[in-house]
Write a protein that binds this DNA or RNA. Sequence first.
DNA 1: TATCCTTGAGAATACGAATTCTCAAGGATC
DNA 2: GATCCTTGAGAATTCGTATTCTCAAGGATA
Lengths: 349, 349
Amino acid sequence: MGQRRPNKVTQLDIARLAGVSQSTVSRVMAGDPKVEPDLRERVLQAARLHSYLPDARAQSLRRRESGMIGLVIKRPRGGLAGDAFFSNLIGEIMDRLHDAKSRLCLELVHEQENEVTVHEALLRSKRVDGVVLVESVVHDSRLELLQRDRFPFVLIGNPMLSRVWSVDNDNVAAGEMAANELIAAGYRRIAMLAGPPGVTVSEDRILGYSRALDAAGMPCRIWHSEFGIEAARRVAEEALSGPMAPDALVVLDDLMAMGVVLTAREIGMRIPDDLGLVSFNDTHLCHVLERGLTSVSLNIETIVREAVDCLMAQIRGDGPSEPRRILVPCQLRRRGSSAPVPRGEEALR
Amino acid sequence: MGQRRPNKVTQLDIARLAGVSQSTVSRVMAGDPKVEPDLRERVLQAARLHSYLPDARAQSLRRRESGMIGLVIKRPRGGLAGDAFFSNLIGEIMDRLHDAKSRLCLELVHEQENEVTVHEALLRSKRVDGVVLVESVVHDSRLELLQRDRFPFVLIGNPMLSRVWSVDNDNVAAGEMAANELIAAGYRRIAMLAGPPGVTVSEDRILGYSRALDAAGMPCRIWHSEFGIEAARRVAEEALSGPMAPDALVVLDDLMAMGVVLTAREIGMRIPDDLGLVSFNDTHLCHVLERGLTSVSLNIETIVREAVDCLMAQIRGDGPSEPRRILVPCQLRRRGSSAPVPRGEEALR
DNA sequence: TATCCTTGAGAATACGAATTCTCAAGGATC
DNA sequence: GATCCTTGAGAATTCGTATTCTCAAGGATA
């Protein structure tokens, strides 16, 4: 009933038990073919008997790798809340890493805190072999640090910086696609509900949105909101009030779009009749809206595959040495929220 | 342009630079007061200059702790997909850990694979100091292993085993609450759409559901489904067809409830008129349904707080030594999907 | 002034495994 | 039969910190 935790079995113990040296045990564990079959068997025997398992910390110290990668997500405290995008992302990464028999160290960075901390805690202290960064802002000091120290990393997002490995959707194209969908559907006052200023996904999609509207000769209107359903709901309340309120919105993500839906419902705007809606991510939420929410699918699975593969290649040291920006195509999933406005009604607008 | 990664600064380097011994550097870094102020300053100076940072692996080896805890979630491959419950959970844990300046190592276990692997990879190999387990099945061999080896761990769920630290909702009560809501609303053929057999959350809620129905003198009907929106949708198709189809469902979680909603929509059943619905988790999804989805809120934040605190206490070795089962109360959030059936219509049923 | 404590800091060792160094035994070569 | 390679495995070293051991200098005490 002692408080002691046993499980102190080390290679040396196994060595003694098998009557060999510690180095031999190490060799056997490593599968070194330079060990006589009978010795090998004796060692394995002993190891099995004591259910020996190597100490990951010691291994990690001696080899120069930890077998872990970090995932750094930058969101305000509580900002992960219920965002299916992240479960998707995390799930995909895990599945991918599973094959590479590497583990994941998750790290959330709150907006306000020093980003450098994470860089230090994770990479400089050798806790992980490399990191996947999600979502960057236009000027992200982390990237430069990582670059300077030559740490293996890949950004999921737009680095706004050259010579950085990154995987991303073509968010400019995505924004354009979304806006064009609404234009084609016959909406006339198409605004955008974007994320916080300076966040690259948001900026890129704004750019795409602007291009589409410019091309159509329509004026742009942009609202910014924090992430999350509640924040978006509040901003939407403002955006959708007044006589010149937009009749359609491109919204930065599904969750925020749900905020818009709630507001619309409150003030009695019907979707898509009074308000057209296109968002991004194509999560489950899109199916739940009565007639469906049109959304741009980001192919997270592909993004993650590319990102993890590329990170692993960097860690292993093989693969192409020149940093590359990988763009994963998006697809618009057309649903009820952007249904073309019936001819008859269009005239009334 | 060399492939070399620098950043090989060790305590010894700092020691040399400051003209002291390595042990002194170590002492300074540890904040040992037994070092003369001027020496201390000299060392800190040098450390800052070379931006020295201790190697977490070495520290972890020498001290006997890794400063990391593991989170083990058991779900089929891809099964995390978009489940807001997990983003919530993970988010909360991160926030909580943040305060305890510990890191999180995430681990997904796929149903079919040997659970022992994780136990070994994480705990026996000393990668983490303790683990939080989520969702257990009625007979979970991991628990016994953890118990035997005296590893610090806490289960979020029902251990079905004594002498295990665990935090959970009172899912029996929750199931009862959900069923009673539908009974009170006047539904007559209340069935349950549960999770896979053997999963404790599911079993517990089934029990609660059964009690409520027994008490009301109504017959129980239970369907089992895998987790996720799609699986639930398929099972719902079967459950809701036929002349004796239920007129209300208690569904194991919001995501699965959405599957039911989709099916209902397809076959033209209106909610709550033709089909009453109560589910669990109270995620954002509940607000999205036109009239809202009634759901039992689980207070994830509280669960996580209790779980993490308890795990930390175990790791530190203080706190109550006797394993305890902590129950966090649930609240029913009443929304449109369980709106009382109007008197007039009730007669028609 | 001689002896006994403090105190501060260097030297040495431990943590657990991987790797390099060394060397003895056995086989091949001339 | 003497020399040169292999080859297998033990001994020693290393990874970077934390800690224990040691010891010299300085202060207090008698």
